[in-house]
Design a binder for these strands. Structure first.
Lengths: 405, 405
DNA sequence: GGATTATGTGCAGATTGTGGACTTAATCCT
DNA sequence: AGGATTAAGTCCACAATCTGCACATAATCC
C-alpha cells in the first residue's frame, strides 16, 4: 500500500507512451491502427505517440504491410536496435561478466573475465568490474548505442540494494551499486537467481509464467508471474536451496538441516565424482579448496554420459531431492512451468525423470496436471542477460525518461 | 503482461479519485491540503475530487481541525459508513455465514447458520446461502446502506471462479458464483485462507505484510505483500498444508506423503484426544464420522489447559511440523510476519514456542531476525470478514464505479 | 485590532486525448 | 483502364482534466 501519487497530464502521456511501446515490443511489428485497437486509444493519439517514439529512435517503421486484405496498407513499426541499449553486469565466484543488449533483445557486446573471487576484497573486485563495464560501454558507444540503464547480478540475497550475504565470496552487507560507482548510470542490484529468471523471460522460450531454478554453487529460484518477478516482502523470496527436504538431515551451512542444497547443491553433486573432497566440501569454509566449478561439472557430465553408476545415483538422488523441494514450492508459489537452469540445465537429461516423477506422484490429487518441467533455453549467461533485461524493462516501463535525453 | 489499456481522461480521473479515497481510508481523517501534499496533486484538483466523493456519500467532513499551529484550520474528511457497504459470504463444513461491512470497517450485519455440509449437494447449500445473503442485504438496506459488491469464501482452491476441489464438502469443479446467482451483485469467489488473510489485513492488527496461516479442517495460507494478496499463476498459491515435512511420512489425502496436514491438520490434532478415531480419521473418507470440529477443539484446549501429557505432546509435534513447513515457506515466500489463525490461533499458547524455536534455529544464518510469529487478532470470522473486505477493496480501487450509480 | 499564516476555491490557461472529416493507397469489380 | 470499396493515417475543432495563481476565509500572534 505504497502511498500512491496522483496522475497528472504528463504522467498520463508517459504511461501511454509506455503502453504503446510495450505493445510494440511484445506483439512484434504493429501498424498504428492495430496499436489503436490493442490499447483502446484513438488512431490520432497513437499516431502522435508513435511519432514521438520515432523521433527518439526507439522504434522504426518497417515499410508497408498488406494483410492480404484490401484497403490502404498500414506501416508497421517495431522496436529499433539502433540507439537504445542497456548494460548487464555479473559478479560470480569465478568470473566477472558484462553485456550490452539493445531494444530488440540482441546481445551487442559480451565480455567475460575469469577471476577467482572466493574470499576476495570487494574493493578490488568492484574496481575490476568497473573497468570491464567501462570497456563494454565503450564498445557499445563505438557502435552508436546509448546506454540508458544498468543492473548487476550478485551471488547472494539483496535487500534494499545491499548484498546481504554472499557466502562463496565471503562478502556481507556490501552496498555494491554505490561502491561500483558508474558515474551517471543508475544500476540496480539483485541476486543471480532473480536476474537469471528475467534472462529466461527476455531471452528464453517466451513464456511469461514460470519458476526459474538456478543451479549454481548455491541453489536459488526466481518466480515470474505474468511477466513480472515476485520478490516477497524484503526481496528475499525464492531461496529454494534451503527448503527443508529431510527434517533431520545433515547440517547445512545456513544453520538448518536437510536443506535441498545439501542434497542437490554443487558440492553434493561433485562429491559423487570426488567422494573424499565431497565429504570435506560439505563443511563450511572448505569450499575454496574445490576445483573450478565448470571443469568439475564437465567431469560429472562425462561420467554420466559414460553411464557411471555412482554418478547416475548421485544425479538421481539430487533429482529426487529437487523434486521434493519443488513439490513444496509448487504448493506455495503456484508457478506456471518449472525451468531448470544453470548446472541443472546441463544435467537436465538425468534430472528430468526423477523431478517429474516426484512432482506428478505428489501433486496428482491437487492439480489437474503438475507443472511442466523444462530445460532453460539459455545457457550460463542467464544472469548477466537478465540484468540487462531488467534495465531494459525500466526503459520500456518509462520511455518518457529516455525521450527527454 | 496483460495487454494494458491506454489512459484516457476519464480513467485519469477515476484513478485520481481512487488515489484520494485510498489515502483518506488509509491515513485516517485528512484535510484537503494534507491530501494535496500526499498525492502530489494540487489543492484545486483535490478539492474537486473530494467534492465528488462528498456528493456520493463516500466520505464526510468531520469539522475543523487545528494542528495547534496558526493559520486557517482545515476541514478533515474521512470515509463515511452511512451509505456504501459490501457483503461477505462463507460456505464452510459446518456453517454458512454472511456479513455486511461498511467503508469504516464496521461490521453492520452478521448472520451465521449452522449446517452440516459434509458430502452435501451444492444446489441445496447454495439455495440456503442465497437466502441468508438476502436476509443480510435486507437488514443492511433497512439501515440505509447500499451494497455495492460481494465476495464468497469457500473451503478449497479456486481457479477462474471455479471451486476446484473441496474435499470436506465433497464438491469438485463447481461454478459457485454463477450458481449462487445474486442477481445484479458481482460476487468474487476465493478460498478461505486467502480471504481470511484479507480479513486480517482489514480488521486485524493493521500490518500490511504477513503470511496468514489458516488452521481449519485443512491448512492453508494467504500471503499479503504490501497490502495485496499474492495468488500465484493460477490462483492456487499458499497451499501450506501440503508442503513436504517428512519425505517418506504417512500418506496424505492429496496423494503425497508426510505433508504438513498429516502432522498438524485437525484430524491429527484431534487424534491425540480421541486416539482410535484419530487413526481412522487420517484415512480419506472417514472424516465425516468425526464430531463437530469446534466442540473437539474445545476439548483439546481443555486438555491442554489441564496439562494433559498426550495433548501437550500432540500440540508440540504439530507446532514442530508447522515450524518446518513455515521454514520452507519463509525461504520461498519471504513474508513479513507470520500470523496464526483459525484453530492455530486458539492453540497459539502451545504452538508459539515450538514454531518460533524451529524457525529461529533454521533461519539464523540466512536472516538477521526470523519473522515474528503472532496470533491472529480476529477470530473465526476472518474469512467472511475478508470476503467483505475484498469487495470493499474493489470499491476503493474504483470509486468512480460507485459514483456513477 | 491589525499582521501573519494556512486552507480552500475560482478562473484563466496548458496539456492531452477524442471524434469525425479528410487524404491516401491499396484491392475489387466491370 | 476507371470507378467503387476498403482501410490506414492525419488534420482540426472540441472536450476533459489538471495546474498555477489570485483571492476570500478563518484561525493565531502580538
Amino acid at each position: 500500500m505504497a502511498s500512491s501519487r496522483g496522475v497528472r497530464h504528463d504522467s498520463m502521456r508517459a504511461r501511454n507512451l509506455a503502453v504503446v511501446l510495450g505493445e510494440i515490443r511484445a506483439a512484434g511489428p504493429l501498424t498504428r491502427a492495430a496499436l489503436a485497437e490493442l490499447t483502446g486509444l484513438t488512431k490520432t493519439t497513437v499516431s502522435k505517440l508513435v511519432s514521438d517514439l520515432l523521433d527518439a529512435g526507439v522504434v522504426v517503421e518497417n515499410g508497408a504491410v498488406r494483410d492480404g486484405e484490401r484497403g490502404r496498407p498500414g506501416v508497421a513499426v517495431s522496436v529499433s536496435g539502433h540507439r537504445i541499449a542497456t548494460l548487464g553486469l555479473e559478479i560470480n565466484v569465478d568470473y566477472l561478466a558484462a553485456c550490452v543488449v539493445d531494444l530488440t533483445r540482441t546481445v551487442r557486446v559480451r565480455r567475460v573475465r575469469p577471476a577467482d573471487n572466493r574470499g576476495s576484497r570487494p574493493e578490488a573486485i568492484l574496481a575490476d568490474l568497473r573497468e570491464l563495464a567501462g570497456q563494454a560501454v565503450a564498445d557499445a558507444e563505438r557502435a552508436g548505442l546509448r546506454i540508458t540503464g544498468a543492473a548487476l547480478a550478485v551471488p547472494g540475497p539483496v535487500q534494499d540494494g545491499l548484498l546481504r550475504n554472499a557466502p562463496h565470496l565471503g562478502w556481507r552487507d556490501i552496498g555494491v551499486a554505490a561502491q561500483l560507482g558508474l558515474h551517471d548510470l543508475a544500476c540496480e542490484v539483485d541476486n543471480e537467481a532473480n536476474l537469471a529468471a528475467l534472462g529466461e523471460l527476455w531471452f528464453g522460450s517466451g513464456e511469461t509464467d514460470f519458476l526459474y531454478v538456478s543451479g549454481e554453487i548455491g541453489i536459488g529460484a526466481g518466480l515470474v508471474v505474468d511477466g513480472s518477478l515476485f520478490r516477497g516482502t524484503y526481496g528475499l523470496a525464492g531461496e529454494l536451496g534451503h527448503v527443508v527436504v529431510v527434517p533431520d538431515g545433515p547440517a547445512c551451512r545456513c544453520g538448518g538441516r536437510g536443506c535441498l542444497e545439501v542434497y542437490a547443491g554443487q558440492d553434493a553433486l561433485l562429491g559423487a565424482v570426488v567422494p573424499m573432497r565431497g565429504r570435506v566440501a560439505a563443511m563450511p569454509g572448505a569450499a575454496a579448496a574445490l576445483p573450478a566449478a565448470s571443469a568439475s561439472i564437465d567431469g560429472l557430465v562425462s561420467l554420466l554420459e559414460a553411464g557411471d553408476r555412482a554418478a547416475l545415483a548421485a544425479a538421481g538422488q539430487a533429482g529426487e531431492a529437487l523434486g521434493l523441494a519443488l513439490t513444496s514450492a509448487v504448493h506455495l508459489l503456484d508457478p506456471g512451468t518449472i525451468v531448470l537452469g544453470g548446472v541443472f540445465a546441463r544435467l537436465f537429461p538425468w534430472l528430468e525423470r526423477p523431478v517429474s516423477d516426484v512432482l506428478s506422484a505428489r501433486l496428482r490429487q491437487m492439480r489437474r496436471t503438475p507443472p511442466r518441467v523444462a530445460m532453460s533455453a539459455i545457457g550460463a549467461d542467464a544472469a548477466v542477460l537478465g540484468a540487462a533485461g531488467l534495465a531494459m524493462q525500466r526503459v520500456i516501463a518509462d520511455p518518457a525518461g529516455v525521450l527527454a535525453l
